[in-house]
Amino acid sequence: MTILVTGATGNLGRLIIASLLERGVDPQSIVAGARDVAKAADLGVRVAQLDYTEPATIAAALEGVDSLVLVSGSEVGQRVAQHQAVIEAAKAAGVSKFVYTSAPKATTSDLVLAPEHKATEELIAAAGLPAVILRNNWYTENYAADLSRAAETGVVAAGVGDGRVASASRKDFAEAVAVVLLEDGHVGETYELGGDVAWNYGELAAAISEVVGRPVRYEALTAEEQGAALESAGLDAGTVGFVVALDAGIRGGALADTDGTLARLIGRPTTPLVEGLRAIA
């Protein structure tokens, strides 16, 4: 079996490849798809140029590939077209397993990020691909900036109210990708993946306090207060609106669900919040 991982030089892509190698996959059976192949030289596997905006590179990277991991793109607003190019190429290549990293409850969620994932899932279904959908909750690494600011200010400020987040470390999610790639029986499944514990921002502040060694408190902001603070920091109106909407989704519970599916897939508990934060401190 030959596996192609898109976005291989990104944070998640690198960890997926590392997890496959840890499970004994032959490095020559893994293809790292990257827009800049030089950045993939240290991965220890085969490398192929893969640019979402250049379909010919996708088709070439898929030559001889049995399984494909589409790590969702990072360019918000452009992802559906980028993903569609990969989906069409995968269908033409006749891949036997197509794994996509989606968002929590992508087809029903009010989360501002969900629509592009919903559209991608619909394209995968319409193409009739033998797919496994992994709906990843938040990565604990998403809070690196909050950790850094809180180390200086002693404050975590957000507009999430008492909303909870079932985060896990990227390595946990990467291991889940490796599992569904290498095991039989997952095609056709959609898995909601999250950490074992859904925490609120008061608990996030306490965890950061433990990591940085100083008192840290959570300051709950209204949407108006948050918007004003972001504007005063120099962010443009579009970015301000996006961040405020994102926090509103968290406040509404979009990231709160956890049922242990991720832990069951990887065969161990997910990485606790404090441990995950300590790894990025």
Rank of each mutant, 00 (worst) to 15 (best):
V112K: 04
E210R: 13
L182R: 05
L182W: 01
T53F: 09
T57M: 00
G194K: 02
T120W: 06
V37A: 01
Y143Q: 15
E122Q: 15
K97V: 01
A256Y: 08
L181T: 00
A60M: 09
Q28C: 11
A8C: 05
T222I: 12
F98N: 00
D257A: 12
N200R: 08
L123R: 01
V155R: 07
L50W: 02
D196V: 02
A263M: 07
V80Q: 00
V132H: 07
P272G: 04
L113V: 07
V47H: 03
L50S: 00
E210T: 12
V211F: 05
P215L: 11
V180S: 14
P130G: 06
T107H: 10
E275W: 09
V95A: 05
E275L: 09
A34V: 00
S67N: 13
V244A: 08
G202M: 03
G161R: 04
E192H: 02
T2Q: 06
V216P: 03
R14V: 06
R214A: 11
G161L: 07
A34W: 03
N137A: 15
G7V: 09
L265I: 07
V197C: 09
G227K: 12
A150K: 05
L134M: 11
P272Q: 04
D184N: 12
V71K: 10
T108P: 10
L265T: 05
D36A: 14
A85K: 04
Y191E: 07
Y201R: 12
T108F: 12
A92M: 00
V45T: 13
A61R: 00
L129I: 03
L277N: 13
V69E: 01
L193G: 12
V76M: 06
A106T: 03
F98D: 05
A248N: 08
V5W: 10
A168W: 08
Y143S: 14
D172C: 02
T2N: 01
S232Y: 08
P115K: 00
E88D: 15
D247E: 14
G195F: 06
L129N: 02
A176F: 01
V177D: 15
V45S: 06
A233S: 09
H83F: 04
E75T: 13
P130C: 03
V45F: 07
G202Q: 13
R14H: 04
D172G: 05
S232D: 13
E225S: 03
S148N: 13
K91H: 11
S109G: 07
S169M: 05
E210G: 14
D66M: 12
T120Y: 02
E175N: 06
E203V: 08
V212M: 04
T57H: 00
V71G: 10
L21R: 15
L12T: 10
I17V: 04
T101N: 13
G213C: 05
T2S: 00
Q28T: 15
E183I: 08
A18I: 04
D110R: 14
A131P: 01
P215R: 10
L12W: 02
L62K: 04
I3A: 09
A144V: 12
F173W: 10
L123G: 02
H83E: 02
T9Q: 01
R170E: 14
